[in-house]
Write a protein that binds this DNA or RNA. Structure first.
Length: 479
RNA sequence: CGGCGUGUGGCUCAGCUUGGUAGAGCGCUACGUUCGGGACGUAGAGGUCGCAGGUUCAAAUCCUGUCACGCCGACCA
């Protein structure tokens, strides 16, 4: 009993205090550490390895659509930032400024990029002359800085890692197609690799990116019923092009403005993985994103042959393409089990003297704790099946949770009651007027998460004001 | 930017009210016994108490200032 109690105390139960649970999991899974600068985190090996896998998967998918990687500076001259009015108004409150170089005060202060639209525009203005130079489909992997007041590991930090794609096209149609294409890349990645189901849709004007004509988003629901914007793709039209003078000569020898897009996904997704799949024992990583998929845990490893067998299993499985480690530390097996669970390693394989004698090993799933006895000769086949099933189950479980926490509201009373009492998404009709969004935010703190591409007509009138409805909106309280 | 809270070995914290030579648990190191859900014994290493002033014979403790971090709000990926 005393042992059980100790286990429970390590990680706060998510039902008791979800925020504390999240912090505990981040800490116990050794994903990050705090630093002496508020809001700037050390991403430790276990956390960074997840990011590397996210990068690898996304980068591959990007390149399949013709994306090329580049790198632009981390500093933006103030004058450049100010060229597009909405954009600077959106970001000015949270940028960090460099005012000195060495001991000298700079003539013009430089902001540390909060996003790189202005730099890409400046660059494209020089690069693009002719329709032959189009399209430009560039992306960069970098960090950006936004001086947030409130910070949390992965979810909101002052410096975070991301990728930002910036494209320039000859026509509005092409830009729109690219905007949607990249949103779909994100959505597929989330569902196929991270096992996180998302709602694809468009942001309201109030919620869209500063300077964008349209912002598309994928929205995910966390375990506590709060929404997390998980990736965005923006269509800028020719707004930035006009502000920065990005023009090309068309085939008919007329001067035209380009149409641009940008799209990004960040280390925040690691937070989403934690909050969608995690449980009271710690992190649960979907097999397809896990840096280590299998931890082999020898039982009674001092006994003749046990460790050798554990290494042999590891080598065989690595050969078969799995990511495998052996925990051969001198901790007790119970300790190793807890470690593997806190770190979210999808399965562990227990191998002890009894198993060796029986020619088997015990596979234990992290998500369900289901124990599967597998014969050593077809361990690899069994493992493939277990990991595939687990990946599918995790997506379905997350989808079921989201669907069970998605409600419809037809009247304002019903809307307020639902949004306040039932954590999750509330679907309701909206007239398109920002006054209603403002009122809802004031009275409930909920925001319009998105207008889903898959529209349904729940009623003819706005849930808030009763005027004719223009769209169904997913509302929710968000991170 | 507002509210709350916290700074003492690597970690979690006690000590502060009432000033008097710095403590515990965990972790770490060595050796031995253990090993199918966080094992145990023995011996050890490790701290100018966030920082700066002040009061005092004497400050982790009292006073003033300052910095940092965490959580909750408003703003945001």
């Amino acid at each position: 009993m005393a042992k059980e109690k100790k286990l429970v105390e390590e990680i706060t139960s998510m039902d008791v205090d979800f925020a504390q649970w999240y912090t505990d999991v981040v800490k116990k899974a050794e994903l990050t550490d705090y630093t002496s600068v508020k809001g700037c985190m050390v991403i430790k090996p276990a956390g960074y390895a997840i990011w590397e896998n996210i990068q690898k998967e996304l980068d591959r998918r990007f390149k399949e659509t013709g994306v090329e990687n580049v790198y632009l500076p981390m500093f933006i001259p103030e004058s450049l930032l100010q060229k597009e009015k909405d954009h600077v108004e959106g970001f000015a409150p949270e940028v960090a400024w460099v005012t000195h170089g060495g001991m000298e005060e700079l003539q013009e202060r430089l902001c540390v990029r909060p996003t790189s639209e202005t730099l890409f525009c400046d660059f494209y203005a020089k690069e693009i002359q002719s329709y032959r130079d189009l399209p430009k489909v560039y992306n960069q992997w970098c960090s950006v800085v936004r001086w947030e007041k409130t910070t949390r590991p992965f979810l909101r930090s002052r410096e975070f890692l991301w990728q930002e794609g910036h494209t320039a096209h000859a026509t509005a149609e092409e830009a729109e197609a690219r905007t949607q294409q990249m949103l779909n890349v994100y959505a597929d990645f989330c569902e196929e690799v991270l096992a996180i189901p998302v709602i694809r849709g468009r942001k309201t004007d109030k919620e869209k990116f500063a300077g964008a004509e349209a912002t598309y988003t994928i929205e995910a629901l966390m375990h506590d019923g709060k929404a997390l914007q998980s990736g965005t793709s923006h269509n800028f039209g020719d707004g930035f092009a006009k502000a920065f003078g990005i023009q090309y000569t068309a085939k008919d020898n007329t001067l035209q403005y380009v149409h641009q897009t940008s799209w990004g996904m960040t280390t925040r997704m690691i937070g989403a993985i934690i909050m969608v799949h995690g449980d009271n024992s710690g992190l649960v990583l979907p097999p397809r994103i896990a840096p280590t998929q299998v931890m082999v845990i020898p039982i009674a490893q001092h006994k003749e042959g046990v460790l050798d067998k554990a290494y042999a299993i590891r080598d065989e499985l690595i050969q078969a393409g799995f990511k495998v480690k052996v925990d051969d530390s001198d901790k007790s097996p119970g300790w190793k089990f807890s470690e593997q669970e806190m770190k979210g390693i999808p399965v562990r394989i227990e191998i002890g003297p009894k198993d060796i004698e029986a020619g088997q090993a015990v596979i234990v799933r992290r998500d369900t704790r289901e124990k599967i006895v597998a014969a050593l000769e077809n361990l690899s086949a069994k493992l493939t099946q277990v990991l595939d099933t687990m990946q599918k189950d995790m997506l379905e479980r997350a989808r079921a949770h989201r669907d069970a926490h998605t409600y419809d509201a037809l009247t304002y009373e019903e809307f307020v009651k639902t949004i306040n009492e039932k954590p999750g998404f509330v679907r309701a009709m909206w007239c398109g007027d920002q006054a209603c969004e403002d009122k809802i935010k004031d009275e409930t703190t909920a925001t319009a998460r998105c207008m889903p591409f898959k529209q349904e007509k729940l009623s003819d009138v706005c849930v808030c004001c009763g005027k004719p409805a223009k769209a169904m909106v997913y509302w929710g309280k968000a991170y």
